[in-house]
Write a protein that binds this DNA or RNA. Structure first.
Length: 623
RNA sequence: GCCGGCUUAGCUCAGUGGCAGAGCACCCGCCUUGUAAGCGGACGGUCGUCAGUUCAAGUCUGACAGCCGGCUCCA
């Protein structure tokens, strides 16, 4: 299947071959850069999911013109068809060779290789690299590649280190595969929720309102509300109660919860009371003193835009005495939270500064934990199944044992982590464990989905928390008449309405199932004198709670159909004299774009009501 | 926040120091349409913002803002 010769004896899958091809192409890239910039210092150049990159420290910043020149040089190296030679050398020998090349980053990378491990260098023509390999046999095997972009990146991924220039590229076995890949990238752009959301008029992000703050249009609001209504039905089935809490709360609340001390940098700055602010200004003798009083000492009252809903739900729990008979209490809220994300990280609906979580906190007893976790998994499964989203992965997010950003003692953490591991076994697919991805108060089970350009985003999450109940000292009276501390489960099946809608737009490419479509039916009168009949149909659909509009422009039918299709309206009803006579409509479905027959109005309304009620997926996605 | 790129009409985009442009959309008129664009006209601009260079700046320089791709971060 591939023209790439394998020089390992063990059998390899095609993806291994592709990986090797790309890694070798990265070496050719570095070789080309070195020819054009002899003073270049190179770091590492791995193959990645859809291609490869290589990081360089260069005397000047690269432009797109440079990419063309580098690509041309790479083609020359491919034409030279030199072999990749593996040289296994002593650590000392490797050091000497890299020193001779004046490659400080490579020397540091060499020092990272554990004692006792084989050190290998790869030579291809005039280029030498410290590399574990393996590689393809000759540069001539590289048939189809393209450099894609330049990006800044930090050495070793640490923002305090030197910033390097990273060149991204991709390579395939054949030009046809490369072309197909580039075409896929191009097509993905059309599905991008940032483009599609604007075109379909679902949401707006306005400079004057602020970065990362989403304005939902009437159409987008319908989408959101339908999702919310869907989830609310499930909440009723699972005996949740809904609550409502404010957008801000006292700083003290978040000091107790730990949000303020632990994640201060990720929050909007506190809102200080005017009097306290004035007094602090007047009585502070220096800016530093003022800063300390406002941020560190407790003698100034302030408020925080809430970064999470949990502290408020905990206080609602604590507002009454609770008996073991009351548990579990499943407290849900579509609560809007605010976080200070770095400006460079904001992106459409998927990374924003204000978003609404479909949040809930379950307060339960130890003996109820397993059943509650199971209920949460069931809820998430219902959502993903209803929406036809099967392409997700599950991550068990654990503490990084080396970090100090977590609260609570080790025994409780272990208990929570094991609880999640056990719950994860119910899943139909294996979950992968990830250190350092936990919340500061507990481990999580995260459901992760990719966007159209391949970036991964966390959507749903289930988190076990033994810590907040202790920090707030909440209790219930047990059957032994003694106080006990409940366990909290934090869970959000969508995660954030904004992020979820963003990925949903891309998932459906804007072709939402009927129940979600902002405009479900568009009525297209053939001639202007049919407008009164179209209005009559419109009124009937409205009574049946079907969202529709009449295209009463003085346009041809073809033009109206084109507009309806491009607006991604699921059904068009064409009405002319024949339909009027029989009190019927001619139906055109977006899934079968041709005349789907003439139906009596009552009949088609019943069909659509059924499709809405059952939350059917678009035919194109049904199996 | 860091590196780089981009920013011209509502949208998509042309405009290589010398009069601000096109297509589509919106609006008006004609046409009265049978399953993906009928025809014509009019309207629409602080060329992201602010400085600078120049006889002259959409075009060159700088700062700032926003967006895009990465990096870092992500409760």
């Amino acid at each position: 299947m591939s023209s790439v010769a394998s020089h390992q004896s063990s059998p390899l899958t095609p993806s291994d071959d592709l990986h090797r091809l790309r890694h070798s192409t990265a070496h050719v890239l570095a070789a080309a850069v070195l020819r054009l910039f002899p003073e270049a210092r190179y770091d590492i150049g791995p193959a990645i999911e859809n291609g490869f990159y290589y990081d360089f420290d260069l005397p000047r910043t690269l432009t797109s013109k440079d990419l063309e020149a580098i690509e041309a040089e790479m083609k020359r190296i491919v034409a030279e068809d030199v072999p990749f030679e593996r040289l296994e050398v002593s650590r000392e020998e490797a050091r000497k060779q890299l020193e001779a090349l004046h490659q400080p980053y490579k020397l540091e990378r060499l020092a990272d290789i554990p004692e006792g491990e084989v050190v290998s260098l790869y030579r291809s023509g005039d280029f030498l690299d410290l590399c574990r390999g393996p590689h393809i046999e000759r540069t001539g095997y590289i048939k189809a590649f393209k450099l894609l972009s330049i990006a800044g990146c930090y050495y070793r991924g640490n923002e305090h280190n030197q910033q390097l220039q990273r060149i991204y590229g991709t390579a395939f076995f054949s030009q046809a595969e490369l072309d197909a890949h580039l075409q896929r990238l191009e097509q993905a752009k059309a599905r991008d929720h940032r483009k599609l959301g604007e075109r379909l008029n679902l949401f707006v992000i306005d400079d004057l309102v602020g970065q990362g703050l989403v304005l939902w249009t009437p159409k987008g609001t319908i989408l959101r509300k339908q999702l919310q209504a869907f989830l609310e039905e499930e909440l009723i089935k699972q005996d949740y109660v809904q609550v409502t809490t404010p957008h801000i709360g006292k700083l003290d609340l978040f000091k107790i919860s730990g949000h303020y001390p632990y994640y201060k940098e990720s929050q909007f700055a506190p809102i200080w009371e005017r009097d306290a602010w004035n007094e602090a200004l007047e009585t502070s003798h220096s800016c530093e003193e003022l800063r300390q009083r406002l941020e560190e000492k407790v003698d100034v009252d302030g408020f925080l835009l809430k970064p999470m809903n949990c502290p408020m739900h905990v206080r609602l729990y604590a507002s009454q005495p609770r008996s073991y008979r009351d548990l579990p209490i499943r407290m849900a809220e579509f609560g809007t939270v605010y976080r200070w994300e770095q400006s460079g990280e904001l992106s459409g609906l998927t990374r924003v500064r204000g978003f609404t979580q479909d949040d809930a906190h379950i307060f339960c007893r130890e003996d109820q934990l397993e059943a509650e976790l199971s209920g949460c998994l069931k809820l998430i499964n219902t959502i993903f199944t209803t929406l036809g989203m099967s392409d997700y992965r599950v991550r068990i997010s654990l503490r990084d044992p080396k970090s100090d950003k977590y609260i609570g003692d080790d025994a409780l953490w272990e208990k929570a982590e094991n609880g999640l591991r056990k719950a994860a076994q119910q899943l139909s697919q294996p979950a992968t464990e990830a250190l350092g991805e936990a919340a500061f108060y507990g481990p999580k089970l995260d459901f992760i989905v990719r966007d159209v350009i391949g970036r991964e985003w966390q959507l749903g999450t289930i988190q076990i928390d033994y810590n907040l109940p202790h920090r707030f000292n909440i209790r219930y009276v047990g059957s032994d008449n003694q106080p006990h501390v409940p366990i909290m489960i934090h869970r959000a099946p969508f995660g954030s309405m904004e992020r979820f809608c963003g990925l949903l737009i891309e998932h459906f490419g804007g072709d939402f199932p009927l129940w979600l479509a902002p405009e479900q039916v568009r009525i297209l009168p053939i001639k202007d004198d049919l407008i009164p009949y179209a209005d009559e149909i419109h009124a009937c659909l409205k009574v049946a709670h079907i969202r529709c509009s009449v295209d009463d422009r003085s346009e041809t039918l073809n033009a109206k159909i084109r507009a309806a299709e491009s607006d991604k309206v699921p059904y068009s009803f064409v009405v002319g004299a024949k339909e009027k006579e029989m009190h019927s409509v001619s139906v055109r479905s977006r899934c079968q774009p041709h005349n789907n027959g003439t139906h009596a109005l009552e009949k088609i309304i019943a069909i659509l009501r059924e499709e809405i009620q059952q939350r059917k997926l678009p035919e194109a996605m049904q199996r």
